[in-house]
Design a protein around this nucleic acid. Structure first.
Lengths: 224, 224
DNA sequence: TTGCGCGCAATGATGCCGTAATGTTGATCG
DNA sequence: CGATCAACATTACGGCATCATTGCGCGCAA
């Protein structure tokens, strides 16, 4: 486990580094954004702990940089600014966790452990299949940059299929993903959504098709 | 995206449910631990938002239950107890995030979005034989990464054979696995399925064959 | 109010599956 | 050793459940 610590205050950095050391976590220390950028270019880290307030800019710029080059490394953001808007914007920018100073070291370590546990820690934020791109972030489906305008239920169907990209989704599983307990259905409503979604995918030349497997379920796959 | 909300206060539950609705998240509501337990037993959720203080116990018991059965669903814990020890113990018990009340709805939603970004975990391949891979989880067979498009009954036959891989399966046992009590058959329907399945396995170059043993049953084995 | 999404239901198409006919294999016994 | 028969294999076929598609009307939301 190798971690990049981006923090300009020496005190905080030292305290963290020694604490991490006790958990057998290798910590690289970057005091500035610039340093951090070259660090991620040269090494692959399993996790990044990132202060927002750095001498040469806002730490979030690093997240933007990482995500733009497709890096999916988990990031925990530390900040003195504790405002709600800050936290929300940080999380929505791709941070996996957000902690306001002052915080207890123990809590940070626990949150690091929680992120470390996650097996497939990370995966691309946009899933691609055929000419279709689906952003898990804001749940937008695009073909050649153009947003597919899909109603709620159809979007849910597509989201579910693409999350299990390439794998079969049992009919019952799809139904569960789209309907809650109390708005169960007693018709082939699901089929209609699939059908309408198929038409839209075809019209948009998405390069994917929803393949039905009789008696089993559905499968999203690139068109032959 | 389907979420289980475990929360006993109706106010909080309602507020969350309507907020989630706007994000096209299907939310099931469980007011008690007991209810939550049966909900996770019957349905598969992509995420769980869990209050610790419930009428019939500590919410963390649900996490323990989930992890003990191997479920890796992400969990966000909500709590009125804001002590450091609580947060750390919650995280170390398998929670993915931990939020102390009172919190802003916006922040919870942002943290939900952060967890949602990750796609569903890949289903483990439990069985491999020859060039054939079979995932018991979502019941699909692959050869060289490509899904074999098999109808229900043939899938059942293959699943049964591969579960007992290497060992012979009595004809009667295979029949029981493929047919329920009430839809018994009076012909060699099973033979036809085996035959059709054989053809598909051969066409796909699966590297396995169904070997028939006269008077006994069948056996799935790698092709010589 | 006006649209649009959604559940519903009717209709048409598809292809799975049980049946049975026919061919093939292998064991048993004269 | 070969005749015989039972067990298994394969294939065609038709019924019918399942799926696909589409129009309709209700209801919610702008």
């Amino acid at each position: 486990m190798r971690l990049l610590l981006v923090e300009d205050e020496p005190q905080m950095a030292d305290a963290l580094a020694t604490a991490l050391h006790q958990y057998d976590i290798i910590a690289d220390h970057a005091p500035t954004l610039d340093f951090a950028r070259s660090a991620v270019a040269e090494h692959v880290h399993d996790m990044i702990v990132l202060d927002r307030q750095l001498p040469d800019g806002d730490g979030l710029a690093l997240i933007r940089h990482l995500r733009s080059i497709g890096a999916t490394v988990p990031v925990i953001v530390l900040t003195a600014r504790g405002s709600l808007a800050d936290r929300v914007s940080g999380l929505d920018l791709g941070a996996d966790d957000y902690l306001s100073k002052p915080f207890a070291l123990e809590e940070l370590l626990a949150r690091i452990r929680a992120l470390m546990r996650r097996p497939a820690a990370v995966a691309p934020i946009v899933a691609k299949l055929g000419r279709l791109e689906f952003s898990l972030d804001n749940r937008e489906a695009r073909v050649a940059g153009k947003i597919l305008d899909l109603p709620r239920r159809e979007l849910l169907v597509l989201e579910t299929l693409i999350r299990r990209q390439g794998r079969t989704v049992l009919r019952a599983a799809l139904e569960e993903a789209v309907y809650a307990f109390d708005d169960e259905i007693q018709s082939n409503a699901l089929d209609s959504h699939v059908s309408r979604l198929r038409k839209k995918l075809a019209d948009a030349q998405a390069g994917v098709e929803i393949h039905g497997i009789r008696g089993v379920g559905y499968l999203l796959r690139p068109v032959a």
